[in-house]
Design a protein around this nucleic acid. Structure first.
Length: 493
RNA sequence: CGGGAUGUAGCUCAGCUUGGUAGAGCGCUGCGUUUGGGACGCAGAGGCCGCACGUUCGAGUCGUGUCAUCCCGACCA
């Protein structure tokens, strides 16, 4: 943010001044977008951000989508406490060990030192499992399908807006089932929902699959995730879904009387998506002008900018009428009637904030009975970037235009992912591609932790997800041992 | 948590080498003129120079410490 490189070519005057070119330094660009688009502000606490109204509106869009899909699949929302007594936390050994380095502790309350420390939840398996143990009696109580919208705290060393902050917002689903099979189906169902939301709503293409043993959630028997690819060639884990086996059930006594009169441990799952998904959206779709929000995620699908000129009153009236019409049609529209700014300044402002469609109304449009459409997903001057639409057709045209923009953003991102998914059978090339952050590097893999560890030491890359296994008729590209499947390797966020 | 860099107005930064009354551009406030890609004029407001200690007659400038931020690694949604 503070230093400029001086070995670059002279740049054209950008359409938006506050944002450095995305290709020059992704990290600098990313931060500028987060702040200038007024999504977040740095908080007066290390590693935390304030989610400003426009940023919160994005979260609300994601939340609404996910919440709807959870409920459609039979889940209910509930809320569990932020604080976890230490004794409770330490019951599942692997789980505690996994989270120990990043747990924040409350040691005082009411002016007195507590006899037992309270952990601020890094995730809620423990509290929720404890309650499930209390609630669950019979196989007739199963399945338990609960989701909670919550904040969690993980004491991270290095933070960045949305991608990694000490406190973040997410949802965590926690379910309990009578059989392993049912739990496994649940985990796949939720993984599918995450992939679907990422691709269809956030327009971020992902690879969904199982995590390797070393990337598994602490205490899980199987972890699955969706992985997106960022423009710098690093992968971003955008959601996870875990089979917890009976590990937590044993640690927290989640048992039930089965139909056959035996006492059994439940099979539990957990799954979560956080506001990190918004970070992926920003990086994947943004350009040199700032954010480009896929219509289904956009707080405002269209912003109306009146160009007042000498017929100010007429134009202002037309703009207000149009706003009312759009809102009646169920379109999320915003009228920018700020008098202090001239149109150009508003264009730049809404460009940064990524509104999919700008509707300009000026004296000329009024005279011709049209409005001017400007699509955010196209470059200025690009074919179809700017079009006119008869005023009467506007409410009907916008939904199809939104679909088109949604598709075009997804397609651009999909093309990038495919072009940067590289399969290789050559060991030297594999290591080189990993080091260079060339993208998702796909190889035949042995699935041995030692092999993965070696690749990591050499290249900083790890497996992102495993692909469906095949016959094992080949050798691991990374080490030469027999391969048992294929895997994507990449450096990650 | 290791290595590197940076902290001066809301933002981007100059001033530090050689200590001597705090600067620019943009933004902000008021009035007027403007309005199809960041308007112009006039008038204004805005600073414990990150913080602490030290050196000095005197510190934005020199020294030590500390905190924060950014970059590169190690650890993670």
């Amino acid at each position: 943010m503070r230093r400029r490189r001086d070995d670059e070519e002279p740049e054209k005057t950008p359409l938006v001044k506050e944002i450095p070119p995305k290709a020059r330094d992704l990290s600098e660009w990313y931060q500028a977008v987060c702040y200038k688009a007024q999504l977040v502000s740095l908080a007066p606490v290390r590693g935390c951000v304030v989610l400003r109204p426009y940023g919160f509106a994005l979260w609300e869009r994601l939340q609404a989508t996910l919440d709807g899909r959870f409920k459609a699949t039979g889940h209910e929302n509930a809320y569990f406490p932020l604080l976890i007594p230490e004794r409770l936390l330490s019951r599942e050994a692997e789980h505690v060990e996994g989270f120990a380095p990043e747990v924040a502790w409350v040691t005082q309350g009411g002016g007195e030192t507590l006899t037992e420390r309270l952990a601020i939840r890094p995730t809620s398996e423990v509290v929720i499992g404890t309650m499930y143990a209390e609630w669950l009696q019979s196989y007739r109580d199963l399945p338990i399908l609960i989701n909670q919208w919550a904040n969690v705290v993980r004491w991270e060393k290095r933070t960045r807006p949305f991608l990694r902050t000490l406190e973040f917002l997410w949802q965590e689903g926690h379910t309990a089932h009578a059989t392993e099979r049912e739990a496994a189906d649940e985990v796949q169902q939720m993984l599918g929902i995450y992939a679907d939301v990422a691709e269809d709503v956030v327009a971020v293409p992902v690879y969904a699959g199982e995590k390797s043993q070393s990337e598994r959630f602490a205490g899980a028997t199987h972890t699955f995730s969706i992985e997106a690819l960022m423009p710098d060639g690093r992968a971003l884990q955008a959601a996870t879904s875990h089979e917890l086996g009976q590990n937590f059930a044993r640690a927290y006594n989640i048992t039930f009387s089965a139909e056959d009169q035996t006492l059994q441990h439940a099979w539990t799952t957990s799954w979560g998506m956080s506001w990190r998904m918004i970070g992926a959206m920003i990086m994947v779709h943004g350009d040199d002008r700032g954010l480009r929000i896929p219509p289904r995620m956009a707080p405002y699908e269209a912003v109306i900018v009146p160009i007042s000129g000498t017929d100010g009153a007429d134009v202002a009236n037309a703009a207000r009428t149009l706003l009312a019409t759009l809102r009646d049609a169920g379109i999320r529209a915003k009228l920018d009637d700020r008098m202090a700014l001239r149109p150009g300044a508003k264009f730049a402002d809404w460009d940064i904030r990524g509104v999919p469609l700008r509707i300009e109304i000026g004296a000329k449009d009024l005279r011709d009975g049209v409005v001017t459409f400007v699509r955010r997903d196209r470059e200025k001057g690009e074919e179809g970037a700017k079009t006119v639409c008869p005023s009467d057709d506007v409410p009907a045209r916008i939904p199809e235009l939104m679909d088109d923009i949604q598709r075009s953003l997804y397609k651009q991102a999909r093309t990038f992912l495919i072009e940067h998914t590289i399969a290789t059978q050559d060991r030297a090339e594999f290591y080189r591609l990993c080091r260079e952050r060339a993208g998702m590097i796909e190889i035949a893999w042995c699935e041995r932790p030692e092999c993965e560890a070696h690749v990591k030491v050499e290249t900083s890359a790890t497996t992102r997800v495993l692909r469906v296994r095949h016959g094992g008729d080949t050798v691991c590209t990374a080490c030469g041992e027999p391969a048992v499947g294929r895997a994507y390797f990449a450096q990650s966020y």
